[in-house]
């Protein structure tokens, strides 16, 4: 089991200033599987997932204790290059955030900052990643249009394409569908299902049906603690903890 874990979270505590937001979290994220994180609002899901690619580094006064391993290497170790970590571990945010640039440049940007300057290669990879994120058909004739002209669902798929283009190894999704209609949501779920062939995926979701549909493992968070972590099937059919059962059956309150 340990050997197939792409990432591992060990005795993680996380503080916003004095506030302990996450308490002693232990969890593994397996290769080529989808790991879901569920829990009520404010329980620390976003905080947790942002720790996995060091996005919380930019929050002043925040502090991490414990270890987050990627292939056995602690990503918070002092000698680690944080830029390299974020390149390997991509992220798609709760609210889609395309840059105010053209559709093409939104994707090309990530390539350019990672040292890819060959025009032909950029064009190829923009096309591939748009195809992989199921957006190519809809935008192939208007790659020069500003990304803000896209619909909300298309913008979120553009953000996924942007993350895919730099070929990360792990992709983190923070409620990628929270602002989307059922059709766009279905598209993105289908996409995540395809992506797990190549990538390791962790996804935060509010939507328990979604977690049940797309994930292999599920972790349930409550007030900064990981209450239960197991195979999705097990969590949804036969949870070990009372709190988990209350939450998934909607009796939480």
């Amino acid at each position: 089991m340990v050997t197939t874990n792409r990432m591992e979270v060990k005795n993680l505590n996380f503080y916003y200033g004095q506030n302990l937001a996450l308490k002693d979290i232990n969890m593994g994220i397996e290769s080529n599987k989808v790991t879901a994180v569920i829990g009520p609002s404010g329980c620390g899901k976003s905080t947790f997932i942002r720790i996995l690619n060091r996005m919380n580094d930019i929050i002043i006064g925040s502090r991490v204790e414990g270890a987050i391993l990627l292939d056995g290497q602690d990503i918070y170790a002092p000698e680690v290059d944080v830029v390299e970590i974020r390149r390997k571990i991509g992220m798609v945010f709760q609210k889609s955030n395309p840059f105010p640039k053209s559709i093409f440049d939104n994707i090309a940007y990530g390539l350019r900052i990672n040292g890819i300057n060959n025009k032909g290669e950029i064009i190829d990879r923009v096309e591939t990643s748009l195809k992989n994120s199921a957006l190519w058909e809809e935008v192939q004739d208007r790659l020069d249009a500003n990304a803000s002209e896209l619909s909300g669902g298309q913008q979120q798929r553009l953000c996924i394409a942007r993350a895919l283009a730099i070929e990360p190894e792990v992709i983190l999704f923070d409620e990628p569908c929270s602002a989307l209609d059922p059709i766009s949501t279905a598209k993105i779920e289908e996409l995540i299902n395809e992506l797990k062939e190549k990538y390791t995926i962790a996804i935060v979701t509010h939507n328990m049906q979604q977690a049940a549909r797309i994930s292999d493992y599920t972790g349930f968070f409550l007030l900064g603690e990981l209450i239960e972590f197991d195979k999705t099937e097990k969590i949804f059919t036969n949870p070990a903890k009372k709190q988990t059962e209350d939450y998934i059956t909607g009796r939480f309150g």
Binding site: M55, I58, N97, Y109, I113
Partner: peptide
């Protein structure tokens, strides 16, 4: 400039 633009960029491995 919205913080989400900066976060989007940093998450792609930008300095």
């Amino acid at each position: 400039v919205p913080r989400s633009y900066r976060e989007g960029s940093i998450a792609l491995g930008a300095t």
